[in-house]
Write a protein that binds this DNA or RNA. Structure first.
Lengths: 147, 147
DNA sequence: AGTAATAGTTATCAAGAGTAACTAATTATG
DNA sequence: CATAATTAGTTACTCTTGATAACTATTACT
């Protein structure tokens, strides 16, 4: 087993920073074809996979504050992609995708899948899975104590 | 060898988005102890390792537009961390860290190293190196054709 | 019943990035 | 060599996405 080299630590996170900007740029380019932004897409993604969610759930999941979620949700509702789901607790605002929202999700997903496959070229599924594992581990370490 | 599963593509990039936000939050918290921001730090990092650079070099390296670099550089110069290096080409603005800049860099690096080691807990150097390799590969795919 | 905590909103601010349009300097071309 | 094209950087302006503080309404706790 090798000794942990301090240079590795540096390079890992610097690389993350360097990767994220071009990635987000490209993602936004794809999303703009559907008049959507990254923050909106993240919420639609979560809802498509997990059904109805409250704003607090979203806030925890995305790691952003409640006012940020309120604004993005309001915009998506205005666009007709989200609708409220009645709940017992009257404080809660539970939302789900409308049928229009699900339709747009599927269209966007087709575009995004294409672009993602393109930039993951030359990377095996095994490597990708290892990457996912790494990222979720780091995320867990980061969120330790938050929320 | 396994067949590439479409679900893996989705999850990889969604995981990247989910990792980046808490990471940047935490990084900014560390940097705020030194009155610095992420964008400024990225530039200092690049300069410390690569010596003097022009704004265009920075723009390519960081994947942002020139006006963004201009602004950040101006702020760092005002703070006394950067100084211009004379060049033959009078259009160019070549910059390097001042001694104050190098001093601050080293101080910040101590803080950042600590935090990075903390959140990379439980991840072997081998895995980290694999992660770095993956990220730079994807970055290369992403930047294909840009610039 | 009265206090705590929770969910969400409103208002305001800031970082950081982009685009368009520009100047000054250098290279290329005809 | 003179002029056109390219390159480096700047200025002015806009936008997205996030944060904080202070608030209301509802629910849970003691």
């Amino acid at each position: 087993m090798e000794v942990i080299n301090i240079e590795t630590f540096q390079r890992f996170f610097h690389q993350l920073v360097l990767l994220y900007r071009p990635f987000e740029n490209r993602l936004n380019t794809e999303l703009s074809k559907h008049q959507l932004y990254r923050a909106q897409w993240s919420i639609m993604y979560y809802m498509y996979n997990d059904g109805s969610v409250t704003l607090v759930e979203l806030s925890h999941y995305l790691g952003v504050e409640k006012p940020t979620v309120t604004r993005t949700i309001a915009k998506l509702e205005e666009m007709g992609y989200l609708e409220p789901v009645p709940t017992k607790d009257k404080r809660e605002k539970r939302m789900q995708l409308t049928s229009a929202g699900r339709k747009v999700y599927q269209e966007v997903r087709a575009t995004i899948d294409e672009f993602e496959q393109e930039i993951l070229e030359g990377i095996s599924e095994e490597e990708q899975l290892e990457g996912i594992r790494l990222m979720s581990l780091i995320r867990k370490n980061l969120m330790q104590g938050e929320f």
